[in-house]
Amino acid sequence: MSDDLLRSNQLPGVTRFKWQQLLGPIVVVVALSYVVSGISVTFTFLTEGTLALLVMVLGLQVFIGNSGVLSFGQSAFAMVGGFATGLLTVPVKIKENVLDELWEPLKAINMGIWPSLVIAVVIGAFFAFLTGLFLMRLSGLAAGIATFALLMVADNVFFNWRLIGPGPQVMPQVPKFSFVDESIILAVIVMVVVYLIGISRRGRLLRATREDPLAARALGASVWRLRVLFFTVSGGIAALSGAMYAHHSGAVSARDFYLGFTFTTLAMLVIGGATSMWGAVVGTIAVTVIGQILLEFESGVTIGGLEITLPNGVRGLVIAAALVAILIWRPKGLTGGREFSLRLPFLSRP
């Protein structure tokens, strides 16, 4: 019954608030974001995109890491968030020209980025709550497959229903964030929320259900209620990620959040270590760095007079291989599923 990946070695996980566990990852993310985005415009763009992905991985972590239940469904809520913020912020003129089949009341709405982000999160969380009421009855493999089916439904609906979006096309002219600071602030807020809810009473109870559902129930924990609660929070965070992505790239379409996105974010979570907030941060950074280096090689790099060009596809190949290797040799991820610590954060063997 046990899934090594989803079990923490620090039984029963972090229980007491420690400043270093919260501030460590925040300092790393903020410092890295400013340093990297300072290099060039391209890197600013990369940083914003990575922060949106980080928020998604944190959203996955708060549910999968604490409950031990595999879910592919969060991508569906990222889709909801991306579409919601797109519909709320794209200028009315553009909507009339490009999205002519859109539902009339939606055409008329227009607001700023920040109120729209709030609404996107609320809508995402609402949908997560609604679907969670049913899906959280399931565990294990059935939960994995059912949440996958949810992703398929969301993709099919958003890809075809022109009343609520661009259908198979791209929704253009989504207003962009002006500064990288906005993405950084949002990511930090999410990190605080994810850490605090993880060590809260309910968070610890949910982790108890992950380790031993029967014993946790004997203590009076309702597995279903706890999972619905965390699924809802996770859905809201995923929606924020989708919205951040939309405001980062200036456009949004259903296929942005389909299988590729689902795979990348899940790989980040597993590679970093699913059971800690720090694991989500490390996984996102590690996969992004590897991906970025390989992308350079794919477009050709000269080392010592020797020009090396890797074929397209190597990036995805290496990340997939890394995921499988981690599952085989270090199933708790690079961090070993631990929170940030100043004592040998990587090297301590589980």
Binding site: D3, L5, G140, P311, G316, A320, L323, L327
Partner: peptide, 23 residues
């Protein structure tokens, strides 16, 4: 490993082979 881990691993193998075919 449990079924959930196996599912994620096969997802990884799947993407690995897709990229391999692409190369």
């Amino acid at each position: 490993a449990g079924p959930a881990v196996l599912l994620i691993a096969s997802f990884g193998v799947s993407v690995f082979l897709q990229r391999f075919y692409e190369i």
